[in-house]
């Protein structure tokens, strides 16, 4: 890890792992992974010819290019400066995404009001700077507001209280 292996030093004096975990190296890997993924998924589609292109022709072309560029980005990052990846804000990420997921999975069953309430409550906690009382108050406010605008005002086809609760 700390350059113990004799071949482990890169031009910038970084360890291989550091070089591998730079922003650019990881984005290069990500692009290559996407390219591979799309190419893999296209394997069962018709290829066709240049005149009569099948469903796989154009995606394979794009995947090839993407993989190539990804590789260049990756190699350049290993031999040059790749930029360091800052740590993830896990709490915020998990809570915010959970809020959206709850809304998505719950909307048709729970209805608009409960989904909004739960999503807003979870999201508010994501900042870590608002307590549960504040979160409750904000949820209540948003439930009333969204109900007034989307159900009362716009007549969107969403039940206020869903079938799971009635």
């Amino acid at each position: 890890m700390n350059g113990k292996s004799p071949h482990g030093k890169f031009p910038h004096g970084k360890s291989p792992l550091q070089a591998l975990c730079s922003q650019d190296a990881l984005s290069g890997l990500m692009f290559m992974a996407f390219a591979g993924g799309f190419a893999f998924l296209a394997r069962d589609l018709s290829l066709g010819t240049a005149v009569r292109m099948g469903a796989a022709y154009f995606p394979l072309l794009l995947s090839g290019l993407l993989g190539l560029i990804g590789l260049v980005i990756f190699v350049r990052a290993l031999i040059g400066e790749g930029g360091r990846v800052a740590p993830f804000a896990w709490r915020a990420l998990v809570l915010v995404v959970a809020a959206v997921l709850v809304f998505g999975f719950g909307l048709s069953g729970l209805g608009l009001a409960p989904s909004v309430a739960i999503a807003a409550f979870l999201a508010t906690l994501a900042s870590g700077q608002v307590g549960w009382r504040g979160a409750l108050a904000l949820s209540a406010l948003l439930v009333v507001f969204t109900w007034a605008v989307f159900i009362l005002g716009l007549g969107l086809a969403i039940p206020t209280i869903g079938t799971w609760l009635s």
Partner: peptide, 23 residues
């Protein structure tokens, strides 16, 4: 911002849903 962003999340979710009524 601590009070604004949950509202943004809720509206975005409703907005995205309403385009095709698709969860």
């Amino acid at each position: 911002y601590n009070y604004l962003f949950p509202a943004i999340i809720v509206f975005s979710a409703i907005g995205v849903y309403s385009v095709n009524n698709s969860t």
